[in-house]
Design a protein around this nucleic acid. Structure first.
Lengths: 191, 191
DNA sequence: GTCATTAAGGTACGGTCCGTACCGTACCGT
DNA sequence: ACGGTACGGTACGGACCGTACCTTAATGAC
């Protein structure tokens, strides 16, 4: 009856999975050490032996949550590529991550290490596919070479993220995505 | 010796000023009902009679904090106008507001009324000056007419805000501002 | 197989903060 | 003068973080 007592990596991953689930369900404000411990079938001691505080656990668990890297679409034209990426971010599994990210950015407060870690996770996963579709668009003569600048290539992503952050929504109207692409992104990167 | 007991509006404004000060000093996570009450020279009862919870008080106090509307500069060319606006937002009195806004967006959580209120405050104060400088640029033939679209005109603001939100900094390097204007904003709105 | 070491489980506690309740007291209009 | 309203003071329950302490199971050395 008594399941063998978990140790080391096995327990650690159980905790991270529990924390990621709690994050997805209740967001960072609802991430409680006691609930995570209970959900992982352990107690707070096991958590505090691995992470110094709630924020650190949150950042670590966020990595599990946002692990999916988007596969950049290749439709043959920039407009559909960009719209595809935005829609994947909007409707896909990435949407609960936005709320969590917002909470974490507040929760990390004045701890530069955590903030940097979080920023890299947020940036890394997001920029690569945009650079990819722009690169192809430039090769087709559909975009100007200067559009390969990361700040330019990811403008649509930043605008959508801003929509998430300021409106607090988990999903944005598709009209908005089309507007972002047609009114801003294509005029900006177009040849 | 005994100061006369404040009532109604007078007390309300004292509370709001105290809350705004606390917000500016410690951000939303540091906004404590007990500290606000003490700073305002009253007690929590007077606060809870006016606002139902901490988030509502925070949003109300934020209005006091972000009341300053930026005066749009008029330098005669779009680049300097845009840079001036960004620098005013970056270095000026508005910078603590970014950290506060980030915290509030988390704190309001699932209360749509507060979120909408906050969103309007954040949007309203920010878009007007951008529309103004773009309007003048269009009149000079320096920007294309389509740039008057709010989403286009405020792109630089959104990018800067994204920098605040994701990096968690209270001030951004001036190089970044220049980059935003030269690499993104001017190519986007230029004729 | 024995045993010391390590890490897990269990529980309790101090501290902070939110939100509520209760009660006495100053101010206000009538 | 008087009664209603709003303020001041205080205490409390509840949630949660982070820590301490002790017991118990697993592991590795010998």
């Amino acid at each position: 009856m008594t399941k063998t007592r978990r140790r080391g990596t096995e327990l650690e991953e159980a905790i991270l999975r529990a924390a990621a689930d709690e994050l997805a369900e209740a967001g960072y404000p609802g991430l409680t050490m006691e609930r995570v411990a209970q959900r992982a079938g352990t107690n707070k001691n096991a958590i505090y032996r691995r992470w110094p505080n709630r924020a650190a656990l949150g950042v670590a668990a966020y990595r599990h949550l946002a692990a999916d890297t988007l596969e950049p679409p290749d439709t043959g034209n920039l407009r559909d590529d960009a719209l595809g990426l935005l829609r994947a971010i909007n409707c896909g599994q990435t949407s609960p991550a936005a709320r969590v990210l917002r909470g974490l950015l507040t929760g990390v407060g004045d701890e530069p290490q955590l903030r940097e870690q979080l920023h890299q996770q947020a940036a890394e996963g997001g920029t690569k596919p945009w650079l990819a579709i722009v690169e192809r668009a430039v090769a087709r003569g559909e975009a100007r070479p200067g559009a390969r600048h990361p700040r330019v290539a990811t403008v649509a992503l930043v605008l959508l993220r801003n929509e998430f952050l300021t409106r607090g929504l988990t999903t944005v109207d598709d009209d908005v995505l089309v507007e972002l692409v047609d009114e801003v992104y294509l005029p900006l990167v177009g040849a």
